[in-house]
Simulated assay, not measured.
Amino acid sequence: MSPPRLPPRVPFTSSTFERRDLIVIDDEPSVLAATVLCLDTPEWRPRGFADPVEALMFASDAEPTCIIADLKIPGIEDLDLVAAFCALRRHGVIILSAYVDVQMTVEAMRTGVDNVLVKPTSPEQLADAVRKTLAALDAAPVQDHLTFTRRERQVAELIVAGKRTKEIALDLGISPRTVEFFRASLLRKTHSTSTAGLGAALMRVGFYPDPRT
């Protein structure tokens, strides 16, 4: 069976939108507000999210844009958050975090992140990174097949095995909130209308229970 396809991507031009939405994710209200204010220009309309699941819902349906995400969202393990956004294959992703080292930067780039910035960063540096990310995104070939992250695949296999959130979290050694984040991601990617039907939808796109579970 062919993998599910993404909606067609419409390249951004000045005549397409009056302002381009950006997605900003940070659980610190003051930092989130400051970043949104910094990026609020006639060119861009930043959308701020403290909840990563809400950000995922918005990003799944949004026109291709730039996502600026903190790494340390409570309950979501490190690169799991940005990996899920990279796997949408619609957006450019920038990490903006105080917790950055060389190993993490290398891993982030392998995941598909476009840039890694260290907090605090200047408004000029952040704006420049956003412009470069958007330019690269608009110039890239359209990718119309969904991909699944390693963690999404692990969660999917346990969902089709009939396991509940707490059981999945225990099996994978992650938090229940992380499981719910990836459950929401899988719901969007499989176009499932309910959690009850998610297992069947996952099997239709090729997921089966891990025989070791």
Rank of each mutant, 00 (worst) to 15 (best):
D138W: 10
V160Y: 01
I168N: 02
H145C: 13
E43I: 13
K132R: 14
T13V: 03
Y208H: 13
T105N: 02
E124R: 13
M104K: 10
I174Q: 00
G75S: 08
A135L: 13
Q125E: 15
P42M: 13
D128I: 10
L146F: 12
R9E: 10
V82E: 00
L137R: 05
P42A: 09
R204N: 12
P64R: 08
S122N: 10
L81W: 00
A156G: 05
F182Y: 15
D114Y: 08
S2A: 10
T16G: 01
C86L: 06
R164G: 08
D27I: 02
T190F: 04
L170S: 15
E167A: 14
D40K: 09
E180Q: 14
A108T: 04
L56W: 07
L186M: 07
R47E: 08
M104N: 03
R151M: 15
A55G: 13
A184H: 07
P123G: 05
G48Q: 05
L117Q: 06
A83C: 08
E157K: 15
C86A: 08
D144V: 06
V82W: 00
L170D: 14
S2V: 08
D138A: 13
P120L: 12
T35K: 00
L198P: 06
D80H: 12
A161I: 02
V116P: 01
V142L: 03
Q125M: 15
T16N: 11
L22E: 02
L88C: 05
R204H: 12
R177S: 04
V160Q: 01
A161Q: 06
F12R: 11
E124W: 07
V130K: 01
E77L: 02
A98Q: 09
E152N: 04
R9D: 09
A87G: 09
R151E: 04
A83S: 12
L172K: 07
K132D: 11
V106R: 07
R204I: 09
Q103E: 13
K189L: 06
E18W: 05
V31E: 08
R45S: 10
A59H: 04
